[in-house]
């Protein structure tokens, strides 16, 4: 029996991004990339999700919301840092109200913002090789 994951339902939270990551996520659900065909989707509730995907350096104001959304996702579940800011290597890491990215990500998707084609590749490769952390 295989432990690998066939699909991934993702809950997105903006932790202080410049909106570039959001626009690329929207493009991924659009007609050119159509990520749903690979079992990848952005869902409207953390209760429907297998993963939290955070963008931005995680502002102090959003830090509580990010962790609350994470708590609402049922295990096994995945924490994804999307883009350089969430990955901890963006340009606003050291601003006073920035927490410097998403804590303890299971998967980091780099880029400023990440290229949509690469996002699909990274997510599919990860799903082929791994099971969701429990």
């Amino acid at each position: 029996m295989t432990k690998t994951q066939r699909s991934l339902q993702i809950r997105h939270v903006d932790g202080g991004s410049c909106n570039g990551c959001e626009q690329e996520l929207a493009a991924l659900t659009g007609p050119d990339y159509d990520m749903q065909q690979f079992g990848l989707d952005i869902v409207a509730s953390p209760r429907h999700a297998d993963a939290l995907l955070a963008t931005g350096p995680v502002t102090d104001t959003m830090a509580t919301a990010v962790e609350r959304v994470w708590d609402a996702v049922a295990a096994p579940k995945l924490r994804i840092a999307f883009g350089d800011c969430a990955a901890g290597c963006g340009v606003f890491q050291h601003a006073y109200a920035s927490h410097g990215g998403l804590d303890d990500p299971d998967l980091v998707i780099p880029g400023c913002p990440p290229d949509p084609k690469a996002v699909i590749q990274v997510l599919r490769q990860w799903l082929k090789a791994n099971a969701l952390p429990s």
Binding site: T59, T61, M62, A95, Y96, A97
Partner: peptide
């Protein structure tokens, strides 16, 4: 608003 306030002007 200002949920995304990072503190860029100070930085």
């Amino acid at each position: 608003l200002f949920q995304n306030h990072r503190g860029v002007e100070a930085q």
